[in-house]
Design a protein around this nucleic acid. Sequence first.
DNA 1: ATAAACTTTCAATAATTATTGAAAGTTTCA
DNA 2: TGAAACTTTCAATAATTATTGAAAGTTTAT
Lengths: 178, 178
Amino acid sequence: MKVSNILYICTMNYEEAKIKFVSTWGSLGTLWGINKAMAQIQALLFVSTKPLSMEDIMEQLKISRGNTSMNLRQLMDWGIVTKEIIPGERKEYFTTEKNVQELARTIAKERSRREIQPVIKVLKEVSSIKDDGTEKTKELIKQTKALYELTETADDMINKLVNHKQNWITKSLFKLIK
Amino acid sequence: MKVSNILYICTMNYEEAKIKFVSTWGSLGTLWGINKAMAQIQALLFVSTKPLSMEDIMEQLKISRGNTSMNLRQLMDWGIVTKEIIPGERKEYFTTEKNVQELARTIAKERSRREIQPVIKVLKEVSSIKDDGTEKTKELIKQTKALYELTETADDMINKLVNHKQNWITKSLFKLIK
DNA sequence: ATAAACTTTCAATAATTATTGAAAGTTTCA
DNA sequence: TGAAACTTTCAATAATTATTGAAAGTTTAT
């Protein structure tokens, strides 16, 4: 690590740190097929001490009203952001799940449902074609079946890990696996 | 499931099944931040009984020479595709890792290195800012620290699962977790 | 050394995906 | 009821990302 970086870290203040966190989370999202604004809105809510209005979000992230509205809806569809009604206020306010374990659980469940399950379905279909005895058909069946099994097992595993309500960040569980 | 789909599945032949597999794997790639051509090339090699040349890949996927070349290089950078030299042949031939466990291991390791580690670094930096006593700073530190711990643990866990050379698709491991 | 058989590179272009902003829609309050 | 305060929608546009294809580069064989 360069000395300049170390100095920078040591002098990072609240605003800088927050911006760094939100923007990094945003690019991570992009890398994982989640759009930047969506990831940034979630990040912003995640470190906010109180619910934020659409105005707040628009202003802090410098994004349009439409963009904010659409991405908040998506986050609500994913089940990780909720509307908060503040008595006496006309505006809508938003919060995200603050518990990282719960957050991970929800995301894993949704991704499984939206992305993994459809693939598992196709793998099952493809691996179930009639074996006509040719080498290439045998290979297709064999390989897609292996992929099917791996995908299903990995999916099950992630869901089990993540559904394990009790703190799954435990040394004991590690020991069993390692 | 609609009746028409059932009929389709039942009558899927080798070519149809292969196309369905390759294109599904391609869209899955897109969804996960991997480009379509790259995912499709890997899928094609994965079910092929013999190494394929650039011509073969171009023809089967209907993509350009440049695209094929660039994506093959990326797959080689990821370590999941290798050049095969066939004696007496001038052309280069390519194969992918055929063992799903090994494939998963390599992908997990690379994704961790490329994507998870940099995020862990930022989370560590941000969660290490000086606590100035304000509520918002305390929240930023608390939440990014929680995310840091979760991310690191999840990353460790995946690597351990996946590095577990012995068949990690075992009923016994499941029992321990569930 | 050179020509044929290949592969790589990269600027141009196409395709896809995200974002804007204003009009339309909704809710609340007087 | 109506108008103010808000949110949603969506066609247009911008930004990003993938793809092409031809020129440049490389390797091999004679």
